[in-house]
Design a protein around this nucleic acid. Sequence first.
DNA 1: CACTCAATAT
DNA 2: AATATTGAGT
Length: 309
Amino acid sequence: MREDDGGNWFTKWQVELPPPEELTPLTQSLITPDLALAFDIGRGPSSSNNSISVVGAKQRHLLPSPPPLPQQLSSSTRDSKTGAPAARQPGPVDFADSGDLGSGGGAGGGGDEPARTLKRPRLVWTPQLHKRFVDAVAHLGIKNAVPKTIMQLMSVDGLTRENVASHLQKYRLYLRRMQGLSGGGGGSSSADAATERLFASAPVPPHFLHPGRPSSDHFLALQHHQHLAAEAAAAAAIPQYRRQVGHFGLPPNGQFEHPLLQSRQGQIAHSMGAAMSMHNPIQSSVGESDSVKGSGGRKVLTLFPTGDD
DNA sequence: CACTCAATAT
DNA sequence: AATATTGAGT
């Protein structure tokens, strides 16, 4: 029952990789909590001066109507389905500056080095990001697709090897499940149901599912992705990429983007219906399945949607 | 050291 | 729930 109607998502898959010109905006820097705090997020008036306004940044996209930041402040605890998250644009920025971070107390303390020993926020794997991941893996080949390489290929600033490793592990599990699965059964193990959703949002190259099966017709895509490969080569060869700017060290150019902070809620809306087919994707207000349970101060970091989707 | 995997923690 | 972290084995 699921395979049949799944044809849809495949169509979307055609998008492939973004042209080099567009795939740069992916870069996203990490904002260390200190940094964020130091800026002005909810801070004094004059603050910010020499830096970026976290919310002021703009994407070089061609969005007809780049939302100026529909700040959707979640009122702390209770908040039922506010306006449907219908707007799934690359801009649901939402800061949850809980500003704790007592450490450092700002610069005064003598400027200790917060960058080290600070925990980075959890990375949010958006479908876009995941797609880059899959593309990278696809182009590297299953055998060469190891965390480090994948990470380099993706050239996403702020991505760490462990981020990738962790994701890769899950992704492999997902692939294995898919293989063993063939038609039967069903049962959706609730355990990995969630996993499925995320991974379902990206196309799984057929080859992944059949380790040994060259003969099969080559399906679309997965061929002219040299772009990525080229970039990959470049990235790998030219270590001039400044990644891991997770430290407070501002890049010489002072050009860091603002990471989208997601406070916890407003998760990415998946429009694909591969899993769960039950209601029309037509802007149905999502609702439900959003029981927000006490996690208030969880800060997360989301990477930029590349805009290609 | 880097990779994979399972288990566990947050 | 979704990631991160750890530990053992290679």
